[in-house]
């Protein structure tokens, strides 16, 4: 029954995007959208969308808002940091691939975490292996799992924990 619910959520998400992109609720475009969304939903074995495992509670929405703000701040910070590295003549990098651990259980939570890490200061998720994330870091500041986790993962985890668990 769980799969059925996920498919409905996926169908609704695709249809929502279709309507937003078309900017109209005219019958003909709506019919085409319904058909296309239906076919895509059938073709996907497990329906999976950003809302799949989202906890639609007030606390969940609040955490989503905070997450977006925090993420935007980190995105700008990451760009300024990399810009400084690229522009400095000595190219002060110190790269390496380290390993961190997440406590998130849901698939969507982990996916968003990996994506967010990729867009934040000098880190790029290379491999997601169950609870372990392998991260390429332009300026490695900590090589052991615990302190690297505290530096890279903890900031996002507090919000994603509430949103997806």
């Amino acid at each position: 029954m769980r799969i059925g619910r996920e498919k409905v959520v996926l169908f609704a998400t695709i249809l929502l995007f279709w309507v937003l992109l078309n900017g109209t609720l005219a019958l003909d475009s709506l019919l085409v959208g319904l058909l296309a969304s239906f076919v895509i939903t059938i073709l996907y074995r497990d329906g999976f969308s950003p809302f799949t495992e989202f906890r639609a509670t007030p606390a969940g929405f609040w955490a989503a808002g905070c997450f977006l703000l925090y993420f935007s701040k980190e995105l700008v910070r990451s760009n300024l940091k990399l810009a400084a590295i690229v522009l400095s003549p000595s190219l002060p990098i110190n790269p390496g691939i380290i390993k961190v651990r997440t406590t998130l259980k849901s698939r969507m939570g982990r996916l968003l975490l990996a994506n967010s890490i990729t867009l934040t200061p000098g880190t790029l998720t290379v491999q997601l292996e169950e609870e372990w994330l392998y991260i390429h870091w332009v300026t490695v500041e900590a090589t052991d799992i615990d302190s690297a986790t505290a530096q890279i993962v903890a900031g996002y985890e507090t919000y994603l924990e509430v949103m997806y668990g």
Binding site: L75, S78, N79, V86, I93, T118, L124, V126, H136, V138
Partner: peptide, 17 residues
């Protein structure tokens, strides 16, 4: 940047923002 991984890093972040 000296290698592929570091290039991907700047490529992703700078193009996104």
């Amino acid at each position: 940047m000296p290698d592929l991984f570091n290039r991907i890093q700047v490529g992703t972040k700078a193009t996104t923002l």
